[in-house]
Amino acid sequence: MTGSLTHTGQALGAHAVTLTFGGVTALDDVSIHVGHDELVALIGPNGAGKSSLLNVLSGFYRPKAGSVSFDGHDIGKWPVHRIARAGLARTFQGTHLLAHMSVLDNILVGRYAHMKCSLPSAFAYFPFAHREEVEHRQIAEEIIEFLEIEHVRHQPVGTLGYGMRKRVDLGRALAMEPRVLLLDEPMAGMNGEEKEDLARFILDVREARHIPVVLVEHDMGVVMDMADRVVVLNFGRKIADASPRAVQQDEQVIAAYLGAKA
């Protein structure tokens, strides 16, 4: 699965990206690169452009200038579903789960592009569609077991609590067998215990799959413990890109978070 990723130094990158909404410049000439098997954390004060950058990387926003490359391809003009099928999976700030569907079906939706049955064979169902369903159910069950959500697998996602939903969101992204994982504030609004659980899952994913992860997060403790590298945005501009330790001592970063000295 890693294939060509191991030959290039960079799995995912944005180059001199500028994004505007009307008169507001959300991102101003931002470049970021993510190496293979690297966890990059994206931080910054509210409104700094973290989510915007993640949306540009996943193809949801089209930048006004600059380019986005994934696995050596310029994906700037690809439709969203093609980017996803190429192996770029993401979770959402808040959640974009399918509320009326069960946990299991949500995760199976992540398998969509890996399944092949056509409409006529789905109409007939036996034997091909059935065999495929059972095969992919097995994969979905492995993810459910990994995330420890067996007991809710048949429940509609809309009835679950916030922490559980975030887990399902992660599970659905994992079901896509991603080559890069983008996590948009996966721990927002969680209590300490839930945060620890999710952090453990993310670390386990890295260990098992060796895929790069981009993490947008507000909790500094989490970021400093988990990240290999930290990118700091402020007012749409990149102000730092270094190891967690170096970033903590960076004058510009301190100024951005605490306000500059008069």
Partner: peptide, 25 residues
């Protein structure tokens, strides 16, 4: 058969949240 297959799930995904459906491939 159709609603139990991947096509049925893609229909429901589009109904519930078409943004997420796109991001799921």
């Amino acid at each position: 058969g159709i609603i139990r297959s991947r096509h049925g799930r893609s229909f429901e995904a589009v109904r519930d949240d078409d943004v997420a459906a796109g991001m799921m491939g």
